Simulated assay, not measured.
Amino acid sequence: MEISKYAMPAIAIFMDGDIREQVHRELAPCSNNEFIKRYCGLDPDFENVLKSEFGIDIMDL
């Protein structure tokens, strides 16, 4: 499953800004899936947000 560029702005609203910026500095440019996987590595609880709000299971990325 590839996270689309249209889904990312909605997902980003739920992210911690500092962690999001850290991942951006580390990985950009990267795919949305790579970004989400790294973000969840730094904020494991975000996996619950992805699942409950967007129906995204990190294991499917």
Rank of each mutant, 00 (worst) to 15 (best):
Met1Ile: 13
Met1Arg: 15
Glu2Ser: 13
Glu2Trp: 11
Ile3Gln: 05
Ile3Met: 08
Ile3Asp: 04
Ser4Gly: 12
Lys5Glu: 13
Tyr6Ile: 10
Ala7Ile: 05
Met8Pro: 06
Met8Gly: 04
Ala10Lys: 05
Ala10Asn: 09
Ile11Glu: 00
Ala12Leu: 02
Phe14Asn: 08
Met15Val: 00
Met15Arg: 01
Met15Glu: 11
Asp16Lys: 10
Asp16Pro: 06
Asp16His: 09
Gly17Glu: 09
Gly17Ile: 06
Asp18Phe: 10
Ile19Gly: 07
Ile19Arg: 10
Arg20Phe: 03
Arg20Glu: 14
Glu21Pro: 09
Glu21Gly: 09
Gln22Met: 14
Gln22Ser: 14
Gln22Asn: 12
His24Ser: 15
Arg25His: 15
Leu27Gly: 09
Ala28Arg: 14
Ala28Gly: 08
Ala28Leu: 14
Ala28Asp: 15
Ser31Arg: 12
Ser31Tyr: 11
Asn32Glu: 07
Asn33Ser: 05
Asn33Tyr: 00
Phe35Leu: 06
Phe35Thr: 04
Lys37Met: 09
Tyr39Gln: 04
Tyr39Arg: 03
Cys40Thr: 05
Cys40Arg: 01
Cys40Asn: 00
Leu42Cys: 11
Pro44Cys: 01
Pro44Gln: 10
Asp45Ile: 14
Phe46Thr: 03
Phe46Asp: 06
Glu47Ile: 07
Asn48Gln: 14
Val49Asp: 00
Val49Gly: 03
Val49Ala: 05
Leu50Pro: 07
Lys51His: 04
Lys51Thr: 01
Lys51Met: 08
Lys51Gly: 00
Lys51Val: 01
Ser52Thr: 02
Glu53Leu: 02
Glu53Thr: 00
Glu53Gly: 00
Glu53Lys: 02
Glu53Asn: 05
Phe54Gln: 00
Phe54His: 03
Phe54Cys: 04
Gly55Asp: 05
Asp57Met: 03
Ile58Arg: 02
Met59Asp: 15
Leu61Trp: 04
Leu61Gln: 07
Leu61Ser: 07
